[in-house]
Write a protein that binds this DNA or RNA. Structure first.
Lengths: 205, 205
DNA sequence: GAGTATACGGAGTCGTGACTTCGGATAGTG
DNA sequence: CACTATCCGAAGTCACGACTCCGTATACTC
């Protein structure tokens, strides 16, 4: 928990109202800006679109990296919650494939989110990595449920499935990919995940 | 053809020998540097590792973008040639899958190549885009051959296959992906591409 | 409504990296 | 071996973006 948030400052006065709303607005604008321009988008751009001075951005988030991390945590947590919502779904196969599709579609245009954060899944020990790990676990659970329901072949495991999820999300995020093409791409992958027959033997020979 | 290369300068003396070797060395070093650090790697880094002054780099390549483009053209052309070598292969299916695997494996660690160049496949009209297009065509030919040989189902088309190729290459390039996981990921995709049965109907219901 | 801690905004500083300039070196020619 | 066109490297310039300072404004307390 590196960012202050709105915790009470040790018995002192609580955070002022405008400060809290500003923080929230900055966070939302940052998600938009980093989503569109990648992690190299400038902090000034965020400040400008949030109708706020640069200093205010840095007051709430000590560094640009901290701001980016806060954005990532928010997004990862949201995705994880969505995944967890699907745990008790009546059709675990559909739940898994739907979530996969949804995540990839959602990544379209969110460059920084797909780029910086998925890849941050293992390179640092910060909050973002932790949130990313939570999402990964949730996807793992969806996968297991789908496998138990017979909708996904038993011999695939989370690492390769998650790698495919990340790969297609990133591809989807970097534009130049029509919706129809994206869907056909996913169809191929889903076919490969389906248990109807194992062509794997063919390739091993 | 935006870069000078070693064309004869209109009847004047030909390019000096040290200039040519320097240009070549810079290009090779740049491929290494951009491959490792992405397109945001600095030009000074390239100059330093090439044992050359910064000015020399800019003399041969007027801008950093031009240098990056030259690297990309070289790489894309090389890959295209490799693909074309496989056109007369006795087993078009194996040729296609092998090339796919080879390209993805080759992308490991080549961040800028996978990142900047594949994505440049449609955003500008420069040499890199042209070279990228040549590679795409070659992959398309390999795909068609494989389909005629019955190794790949007939109802997939180049856009989605190429999108998968790009997606997995990028994923592979950004490290954090073990070789075994990468192979299992490809196995899933190859299964999905195989014509042994069409699970697509199942998903459409 | 006065007082004060809290928060704000704009004008800085500072470092980095792309690109230029120019005096000095060196390959090629005779 | 001299001569010159070509090429080179080090020390710049310049723009941009992350981050800071400080005087001002505003939200909360009483």
């Amino acid at each position: 928990m590196s960012t202050p948030g709105n915790r009470d400052m040790g018995g002192k006065r609580p955070q002022r109202a405008d400060a809290r709303t500003n923080r929230e607005r900055i966070l939302n604008v940052a998600e938009e800006v980093f989503g569109k321009g990648g992690q190299s988008a400038s902090t000034e751009e965020v400040a400008r679109l949030a109708n706020v001075g640069i200093a205010t951005v840095f007051r709430h988030f000590p560094t640009k990296a901290a701001l980016l991390e806060a954005v990532l945590v928010q997004r990862f947590d949201r995705l994880r919650e969505q995944a967890e919502t699907l745990f008790p779904a009546p059709d675990p196969g559909a739940a898994f494939f739907d979530f996969f599709s949804h995540l990839v579609a959602d990544a379209a245009g969110k460059i920084a989110i797909a780029e910086a954060l998925f890849e941050a899944g293992g390179d640092n020990g910060g909050d973002a990595a932790q949130a990313s790990d939570g999402l990964r676990r949730a996807v793992g659970a969806l996968l297991q449920h789908a496998q138990r329901a017979g909708a996904v072949r038993d011999d695939v495991e989370l690492p390769e499935v998650y790698a495919l999820l990340v790969a297609t999300s990133r591809a989807s995020a970097h534009a130049h990919l029509e919706e129809a093409v994206r869907d056909r791409m996913l169809t191929i992958i889903f076919d490969g995940l389906s248990p109807l027959r194992s062509a794997r033997a063919q390739l091993k020979t």
